[in-house]
Computed example of a mutant assay.
Amino acid sequence: MDSSSMKHFRRCVTCLLDLPDEIFLLICRYLSPADVLYSFYTPSKPENRLHRIIFDYYTKIKLGGITNKEYIYLSSLFCSSKDSPRLQSLVLSNEHATSLTQRYFIDISASIIQSMLTNLKHLKLIDCLSEDLTFLYIYISNMKQLESFHITYRKLDEKTNMIFCQRSNVSINQFLFDKILPSLNTVSIELNDGLILNKSLVSHHNLRHINLNLQTIDDLYILLDGLVPNAQTMIIKICQSRILNCLRPKNTLSCPKLIEFTLLEPRIGIVIDNIKCILGCMPNLIKLTLSIRDTPDSTFCRGPLFESILNEDVRHLRQFDYTMTHRIVDNTLIEDFIQWPME
């Protein structure tokens, strides 16, 4: 091949640097995140285009479902004082093996872990154990910039789950209400038997978006009694029907900024007075979603009556999504179910 042919050949060859950013990122999807970092992460030359394109890969890292080789490489990155990524988002997963969350950090010094968490804004724990949260709590003072915290807990057998839940409740409440995470504004906690709250907890004024599994409606009353006064959206699932004290909120209008509220209750025997008490705390609600299952209170299926209650308690309501099942007894008549036009 002569020189002119060689030049023509080179002009016809496309290399990675010739590709648009979007196409390059599509190619990266066929690689593991560790392989992408190994190939294109060049912190010593941050001006490199490919290094800049893979920004999400070295600021948003998931530790879970990775090979031992990938783990060794990522650990070496974290342990490097010069090349350690400045994490903004971290996902720790125990889905594929037990207690991996703690093992990920076993070979990393405390100072490196602290530096990893300093810039962290989003933390997600998948298939979490109470020990994981206890371990992370050691470094909670290094997570001042944390904005969102998402936990899904591992499902355990009933006996183990009881001990596990007791430990988890303490750890979660420390994370949320010890005034150590001032930037935290979004939380999602999926605890199997529901989170237990107590009246001694300190209010968190920065929490805006809340998604919680709570154990009983008493825990919801505590939450609404000034614990999250600036909440804007809230999704609550009540896990158990046991009502201990009926601790109705003393502080009415305690969530004046709440505009979206969802309540999911799987057959806890909720009655209309519970709903009126809850709605009384959120006068500026715009969107309401209720899922009421197997309720003994027929008010929930009396459309006009229920509508009048909503008009009285949440006057700014614009959207209402409603699912309800009512327990039918022998003396229930078809006439008892009145069509609700929702006009």
Rank of each mutant, 00 (worst) to 15 (best):
P341C: 05
L264E: 08
P46A: 07
C255R: 03
Q166W: 03
C301R: 06
K144H: 05
S200L: 13
T101P: 01
T134H: 09
T160I: 02
F9K: 12
H96R: 04
H8E: 11
V271Q: 05
F135Q: 06
R52I: 05
E307A: 11
T186L: 10
L197R: 13
L317T: 12
R248D: 11
R208W: 00
S99V: 03
M162F: 14
N173Q: 06
P229S: 12
T252K: 13
N230K: 14
R267V: 02
I268F: 05
L317M: 14
I180M: 13
L26A: 05
L184A: 01
D193G: 06
T299M: 07
S183F: 13
S4M: 08
L263A: 05
F300A: 00
V271Y: 08
P85I: 01
E131F: 07
S171H: 11
N211P: 06
N169L: 07
H150V: 10
C239W: 00
L333G: 05
S111L: 11
L290Q: 05
M6Q: 08
V170R: 08
P33K: 06
T233H: 01
I259P: 00
I189E: 03
Y153P: 02
L156N: 05
R248P: 00
L305Y: 08
L50E: 03
Y221F: 15
R315E: 15
Q174C: 03
P85H: 14
K237D: 10
V271D: 00
G226W: 09
R154L: 12
K62A: 13
V170L: 14
Y58P: 00
F55Q: 10
I338K: 02
T325P: 05
F9N: 13
D127S: 14
K250C: 07
N284R: 06
V228F: 14
S4N: 14
